[in-house]
Computed example of a mutant assay.
Amino acid sequence: MIRHLVLFKLNEGVGRDDPRAVEGAAAFRALGDQIPELRFWECDWNITDRPIAYDFAINSAVDDADALKRYLEHPAHQAAAVLWREFSTWVIADYPF
């Protein structure tokens, strides 16, 4: 299994109530039901308010590297990622477990 973690930081001047952020969060929440490769899926807004904190997180798991590739290339994932590129930056980590 591979754990896929993503942390998003909203760009300066973009709040969680920004319509783009609301749409982006909804798009990612929906992926758990749209992409069969996902064995585990959760995402939500961070509840802490610390200067080093990121704003939104995805915690997911897939079976293997091929499944991760299919997930990343899935049209629903690509559409959601395009939304987030407009108003955030992010970091990822993929590791076996």
Rank of each mutant, 00 (worst) to 15 (best):
I2K: 14
R3S: 14
R3A: 15
L5V: 13
L5R: 01
L7T: 13
L7F: 13
L7H: 05
L7K: 04
K9R: 15
K9H: 15
L10H: 08
N11Q: 13
E12V: 08
E12G: 00
G13Y: 05
G15E: 14
G15M: 04
D17M: 03
D17F: 09
D17Q: 11
D18Y: 04
P19M: 08
P19A: 08
P19N: 01
V22F: 06
V22D: 03
V22I: 13
V22E: 11
E23K: 07
E23S: 10
E23M: 04
G24V: 10
A25I: 04
F28W: 03
F28H: 00
R29D: 11
R29I: 12
R29H: 12
L31H: 04
L31R: 03
G32K: 00
D33S: 12
Q34W: 04
I35M: 01
E37C: 09
R39K: 14
R39C: 14
R39F: 08
N46R: 08
N46P: 05
T48L: 08
D49G: 07
R50Y: 15
I52T: 13
I52N: 06
Y54A: 10
Y54R: 14
Y54I: 11
Y54E: 13
D55N: 11
F56T: 14
F56L: 12
A57G: 14
I58H: 03
I58N: 06
N59R: 12
S60P: 08
V62D: 07
D64L: 09
D64W: 10
D66H: 04
L68G: 05
L68I: 07
L68Q: 07
K69A: 13
R70P: 03
R70K: 06
Y71L: 03
Y71T: 01
Y71F: 14
L72H: 03
L72S: 08
E73I: 01
E73Y: 02
P75A: 02
A76W: 01
H77C: 02
H77F: 03
L83W: 00
W84S: 01
W84D: 02
R85H: 10
F87A: 01
F87L: 08
S88K: 00
W90D: 01
V91D: 00
A93Q: 00
D94C: 00
Y95K: 00
P96M: 10
P96Y: 07
F97L: 13
